[in-house]
Design a protein around this nucleic acid. Structure first.
Lengths: 171, 171
DNA sequence: TTGACAAGGTTCCATATGGAACTAGTAAGG
DNA sequence: CCTTACTAGTTCCATATGGAACCTTGTCAA
């Protein structure tokens, strides 16, 4: 006789992969957008968590530093537009980087409203450290692709970047 | 004679595309990771801004609703793992969705620590609205790809998703 | 049977975040 | 030259966010 309080029906808890597989079968969703943003979330999330833990840099600070290291001197406004971030968030990041001696600023003589931002050697050193974390995570998350597939991905991403003027916008 | 205070050298302000093009030429950066995360940032950013403005849903609420609409009944823990979000953030999102009558909960009889979440008809209606926003933004941001390139992208993303167990993890 | 430990989710609270307001500077037109 | 409109960036402040602590429930070894 069954004990009426006995509950042997074990609830199955879905794993993320199981959820993802079923979700992707749902009709008419943004399959590409979903997969791309999920991949990116699990790419940047761990990377920025590690950078914050090891170097005390928040996401916006890291990204500002990255832009200055790889592009060169920029204004705050340009960085806002490039990263798609609110101007006070970028202003705050710049302030923190200044306090840490990782960048320096000068007023643009051509327009004294603008601040020109330049990376310092200490900032460049830090950027090289954080870039390693990015590269490792990228290699891990793209490890399943063959060289031919990497080339195909590169080709597609280049195509999307060529059209960037149509989707890089403030919001 | 030049006026020594006259500054006719007009500072060029770089556009986001110009910045991106130069950044991508920098040696040894995470080119794929950068482009993927930049694309996704400009995909999800405007989408969630619009959803928040029109429906009063924050990002986590929308994502919880999406998971419940497309997968079906889930626990909070499973949603945390799937979305890569802190458990108190998901807890808060669930609470807000409950208050709005968009989902309902029941205690899992198999394990009374767990809460089983189910979408309500009102939640499903809202999900259909927000999904349109996703689809429109996805179509716009992938418009430069040919059907053949869309197929190639789908193939690559499927490959990455097949390996999702290796990169969907808590952080 | 009991105690230690872990799991699932909630609550706390210090700090981060971002929309709006603000300030200083620039440009165009009358 | 003055006024108006706009730009670039800073500051304010209400609210969002997330790590840690906590509570309840479940598991397991001694």
């Amino acid at each position: 006789m069954n004990d009426r309080f006995d509950d042997t029906a074990e609830s199955h808890v879905a794993t993320p992969k199981e959820i993802l597989d079923k979700v992707l079968l749902y009709p008419n969703i943004d399959r590409d957008g979903l997969r791309l943003s999920l991949w990116s979330g699990f790419y940047t999330g761990p990377v920025f968590a590690q950078i914050e833990q090891r170097f005390g840099l928040y996401r916006d600070e890291n990204n500002v530093l990255f832009a200055l290291a790889t592009y060169g001197q920029l204004t705050a406004k340009s960085i806002c537009e490039f990263l798609g971030r609110p101007k006070n968030s970028i202003s705050r990041a710049i302030d923190r980087l200044l306090k840490k001696g990782l960048i320096h600023t000068e007023v643009d003589p051509g327009d004294r409203r603008r601040v020109l931002l330049t990376i310092e050697p200490a900032g460049r050193d830090l950027h090289e450290q954080t870039l390693k974390i990015h590269k490792e995570r990228e290699a891990h998350m793209l490890r399943s692709l063959t060289p031919v597939e990497r080339t195909a991905l590169d080709s597609i991403l280049s195509k999307l970047i060529d059209d960037a003027d149509s989707w890089i916008e403030t919001f």
